[in-house]
Structures are given as C-alpha cells and as structure tokens.
Amino acid sequence: MSNVVEAKALRVQIPLDRVAAQRRSQMLTRGGLVLAFLIVVFFTVLFVAPIYWMVVTSLKTTAEVFAIPTVWWPARLMWSNYPDALNVFPFITYAANTLRIAAPVTIGTTISSALVAYGFSRLRWRGRDLVFYLVLATLMIPTWVTLVPLYILFNHIGWVNTYRPLVVPSFFGDPFSIFLLRQFFLRQPQDLVDAARVDGATHLRIFTQIILPLSRPALAVVALFAFINSWTDFFNPLIYLSNPDKYTLQLGLFNFFSQHFVNWPGFMAASVVVLAPIAVLFFLTQRTFIEGITFTGIRG
C-alpha cells in the first residue's frame, strides 16, 4: 500500500508527456475484457431500444404506431415520412436559428464557467466557499417561482422576442458547469500551480497555460453539455420567442401535435433529423474528453 502513496508523491517529478502516454490503464485480463464486452453489449441493447423505436416509428403509418400487438418492424417502410415531416415547418431556418443560439451559448458557458471555477478552486480567499455555496444554491431554486419575475425583468429591458434571454446569461457562468470544472481543477496537481507562482507567473497565465490544458476532458464535457442543452431546450425558446421567424427546431417539433391528435411518425422523423447532429457530434467529440489528452506547452 505504501507504494501508492509513494507513487503519488513522486508524481510531479514524472515528465508530464510520459504521464499522458500512460493515461490509459489496463486493469483487466483478456478474459475479463470479453466478459466486460458482453455486459456492455447487453446493456447497450436496453439503452438503444428507444433509438430503435424512434427510427422505426418514423417509418410507420399512423395506424401502425399504436397497433396491438406492437409492430416492431413495419411491413412497408414509409420513407416519405421524412420529406413530409421536414415540410411541416421551415426546417433550414429553424436549424440556423437554433445554431445561432447554441454556438454562442457553448462558447459563453465554457469560457465564463472556467474563469469562475478557477476563482473557486485555485485561489484562496476569505469567504470563497461561502460564495461558492451561493452559486450552488442558485441551482436549487425551482424555476417555476422565478419564471414570472424573470420574464418581467427581460420584458422591462426589451429582451423578450429576441435571442438575448437565451444567450446572454450563459456568458456569466453556469452554476452546473462552474461546479463541475471546480471539482476537476481541484484535482490538478497544486504543486504545479505553486511552482509557477514562485516563478512569478500570473494567475491568468496559470489558468490558461496549466489548468486549462490539464482539464481538457472536463472542458469538453462542459462545452458539449452546453451545446446539447441549448440545442434540445424547448421551454425557454417557448417562453421568450413569439415571432415564428425566430423559432428553433424544438418549437418546430410541436407542429406535429394538434389539439386531439399527434402525428407520431412525422414527429419521430423530425426528431431523428433534429437529434442526428447531436449523435454525430457526441460520437466525434467523445475522443476529446475520453481519450488522447496531449500536454503540449504547459511547461512554457
């Protein structure tokens, strides 16, 4: 056991590029890996069921959606549901609008939350943790009771029916992301920060050149979540936008619900198209926060 503690004590002395190369640990034998693979496959099937169901429903007729016994594979695939669904609302316009919101939100959330998280983790000042609890506390207030005063506030400054209520707050730190990044920043070796301080580095420099590069996985998670949350948000656009020219994809999905009737195949086809970019994005970016972290230039 003492080896563990010793290795930790030695850690800062190990060149960081070697650490990077060794990040991935292999804890299991070959047999263990096979078992793990089978377990993962089994549960993936459970988790994939809804995706399968979404796609299959998007290819059904309305009658097949609720047929009993359940239709697991339609007799005739209704590919025409897709072009039909995308004609129900101005898909390209809404997609562009959604991107216009999601892109700045992603950038704003990541940058501002990282700054704030640094102030809550790598700097020590009186009252820091008290203020941090206040940040956490804002996550705990049910939104329903602040909705009306917040709307009145936004209306008062003329922001209703613009993208500003959806975008601007993200430039002022998101509590969830601040908390997440704080926890990750605290795990970075304090000795590195201390050494840099002794060498006369400013906090901004420590932040940008040591902490941020070391926290790439967490930053990627924050950026990805910010983008996805903004992309899939339907409540805030619903509250703050009323000009159809400004609507987002999630509001477009409502077009498949009428008073007494839901066009499920159309809704599912549109949902597949709306969510596909997220699946692709996730698939492409998951390497960033799960694999290959490079440590270039942190000692500079």
């Binding site: 930790k8 190990i14 060794q22 990040r23 640990s25 795990r187 996985p217 694999e291 972290i293």
Partner: peptide
C-alpha cells in the same frame, strides 16, 4: 482520464 497510471 486523469487518474495517473503509475498509481495503478
């Protein structure tokens, strides 16, 4: 990702 391998 940043659990150092040498600990293992």
């Amino acid at each position: 990702q940043d659990v150092p391998r040498e600990l293992y």
